[in-house]
Computed example of a mutant assay.
Amino acid sequence: MMSLIANETKKIALRFSTWLYPLIIVAIVIALSASYKSFVPDLDNVQLMLSINSISMFLVALFSIVLASAVVSSEFSYGTIKLLLIRPYQRWQILLSKYIVVLMYAIILTLFTVIMSYIIGGILTSFGSLTQDISISNPTFSENGDVTNVGQTAIDALGSRLGYFTIQLIFSSSIAFMISSLLRSQALAVGIGLFLLFVNSIAGGIMLMLVEQFQWFKYIFLAPLYYVSMYADGLGMDVKGLSPGLAIFVLAVYYAIFMALSFLFFQKRDVSV
């Protein structure tokens, strides 16, 4: 199994896009940091990192979904799937190795983005304390207009956001991975994966607004996924009948279904090219 993971890691490492994505993120972080500094000169790097968190993490999700959408379908597009399956491994082992490498890349890209945001922000502004109270520089408000994060430290806020983002990232990447395992066309798989990413910000928001009127909407994965994404952006909201725990549970059920479909379909599918 480890040899399969090593082989898939090598494949991804040889892709030009694998190294291009981090460079794009660094360029965007520099541009955003410089822009924020021009508007708020006394902002330190910790406050800056929290301010650009939603944009930088969106890029991580975007590039991770592109990779997950192509990792299996590309084998069919390039005609290499037969060479892969003649190796002395079970199909589920081959698919699992690809999935593990996709998640590894997504998590590494997340950590890389956080570290680079901290370093770039510190160079352009100043290095702030991770234990500072962020309720003044990055306040969150309740529906009544009250500040809800009084006394919250930067490290707590960052940890909470990364935790929710990791859930969002794994779920979104898993959907894209399922699409990749179901389709032969790399272009179609990537296109559908990106479509789902962008449609979630619209359809998920609409469904979330309808949850209070139609409680069954909270069981459609777009609503809890959007709900979790709001917490990942530091914009947690109160929705009647829906809590972070319930949202994560619903996503976990869908996750199990999507992964089961991916492995079952790949195990049974015709691999003639």
Rank of each mutant, 00 (worst) to 15 (best):
V150F: 06
D270S: 10
Y226A: 11
L264D: 02
S33G: 15
A176Q: 05
Q132A: 13
T113P: 03
L194T: 10
M2H: 10
L183Q: 01
L32W: 08
L210S: 08
F58R: 00
S172H: 00
W92H: 13
F171Q: 07
F112R: 07
K98A: 03
G79N: 06
L188R: 08
K11I: 12
A232P: 01
L103N: 12
Q47N: 14
Q168D: 11
F266L: 04
V273C: 03
F165V: 10
K11Y: 06
F127D: 10
M57E: 10
Q215R: 07
F263D: 00
L162S: 02
S201V: 02
F249C: 03
I108T: 13
S180E: 06
A223D: 09
N200I: 01
S142L: 08
I192G: 05
G163F: 13
N144Y: 12
F171W: 06
F171L: 06
A68P: 02
I81M: 15
S172F: 05
Q90T: 14
Y255W: 13
K98M: 03
I175P: 01
I12Q: 14
L48V: 07
G191A: 05
G193N: 05
Y231Q: 07
A256L: 14
L14Y: 09
I81D: 13
T9N: 13
T153Q: 09
